[in-house]
């Protein structure tokens, strides 16, 4: 969806309440992020603890994933994938990962 600038010429033009023009389908709150989690799939055991702890629903389970895996034994398991549209970089996934395969990298401007 494209952003449109709305101009108010007089107070009467304003709605009587703040109204968002779209839902989070257009307002991608991942823009708030200053650090982004990056998963090293060579180490990731696909335990899904990051998915369980994410407070935002920004870790998605990807079935039949093409991501790298440390061994054949777990390659069939769904892989955790960060949804950068909404991930706010809280770092809980990195904190909770039992194998410490998630690194919080600074978001470049």
């Amino acid at each position: 969806m494209k952003e449109k600038k709305i101009k108010f010429n007089k107070i009467g033009d304003l709605p009587y309440l703040t109204v968002s023009l779209g839902t989070t389908r257009v307002n991608l709150t991942g823009q708030w992020r200053s650090f982004r989690p990056v998963i090293d799939y060579q180490k990731c055991t696909r335990c899904m603890i990051c998915w369980k702890f994410c407070p935002d629903v920004s870790v998605i389970k990807e079935p039949n994933s093409k991501k790298a895996a440390p061994s054949e034994k777990i390659a069939h398991l769904p892989a955790p994938v960060i949804n950068y549209d909404f991930c706010k970089g809280c770092g809980i996934c990195a904190e909770e990962c039992p194998v410490k395969c998630i690194e919080m990298k600074p978001e470049k401007k």
């Binding site: 309440l17 703040t18 109204v19 968002s20 023009l21 779209g22 839902t23």
Partner: peptide
Amino acid sequence: PHAFGGLS
């Protein structure tokens, strides 16, 4: 869908 009364 809209959100009302948000950050102003």
